[in-house]
Each structure stands twice: as C-alpha cells, then as structure tokens.
C-alpha cells in the first residue's frame, strides 16, 4: 500500500504548471512524448539537471482533428526556462515532425487550465 507522505504546505516544494500546445504532423502518443521530452532534458541538462527539474506530465488532451494536443506539465518553480528550452529542442516524435510551445505558466493546475487571464504567450 502506498503511504501518503504528508508535508505541511509551507515546506512543500514549489512548483510551476505549464500549459503547452503541441502541433504535429500526426497524432502523437502520450508515452512517446514523455520519452522524447525525457531524452531532450537529459541531452541538455544531464541526470543532475533532470533531477532538479522534476518533470511530470499532468494532463494530456488530444484536440479535434488537425488541431494538435494541449496538456499540462509540472516542474520545479525555478526551472521553467529549462523546461521551455527542452520543449523547444524537440523537433520530431516517432518520425513525425512536431513543434511545442508553452502557452501559459501558473502555480496551480487550475490557473494553468483556466481560460482568459494572461493566456497569451507571456
């Protein structure tokens, strides 16, 4: 049985949630994306860097035909730029060309997925 580790809110790791958009030639499998993203981070920052980035895929949602994918990634709060660079370095997944961009970052999942606000590229 998995034991819940309780950490008081003031001592919890600070995180950032990144809403991203993936545009690809074909439909991209969630696992394939995660693998490619892991490879990209390892290639750029190595094992130590990857451990500090603490990346997780939180949500993954395929949109209508031809409109790509949107999803939410989680990372350490001070490693957003590193994740951005790693995402930008992905040029193909399973031989389908892709490009990924971050739409929005937030401290909560709700903030990242909520419409409006600073939803522009900032």
């Amino acid at each position: 049985m998995k034991v819940m580790r309780y950490v008081p809110p003031s001592l919890r790791e600070r995180r950032r949630y990144l809403l991203f958009e993936l545009m690809g030639e074909r439909e991209i499998d969630k696992r394939a994306l995660l693998k490619e993203l892991g490879d990209s981070i390892h290639s750029l920052y190595g094992d130590v860097g990857a451990s500090e980035i603490k990346l997780r895929l939180i949500r993954y949602h395929t949109r209508k035909e031809g409109e790509g994918v949107v999803g939410v990634l989680r990372c350490a709060h001070d490693r957003v730029e590193e994740v951005r660079a790693s995402l930008a370095c992905i040029h193909s997944i399973t031989d389908a060309r892709v490009s990924i961009r971050v739409i929005k970052t937030s401290g909560t999942i709700r903030g990242a997925t909520r419409h409006g606000g600073n939803a522009a590229s900032r």
């Binding site: 545009m23 690809g24 030639e25 951005r84 660079a85 995402l87 930008a88 040029h91 193909s92 060309r97 892709v98 490009s99 990924i100 961009r101 971050v102 590229s121 900032r122």
Partner: peptide, 8 residues
C-alpha cells in the same frame, strides 16, 4: 514545424 514561439 521548425518555427518556435518567441519565448521558446
């Protein structure tokens, strides 16, 4: 697919 957003 080679275009990247400014922030990226």
């Amino acid at each position: 697919y080679d275009i990247r957003a400014p922030r990226e």
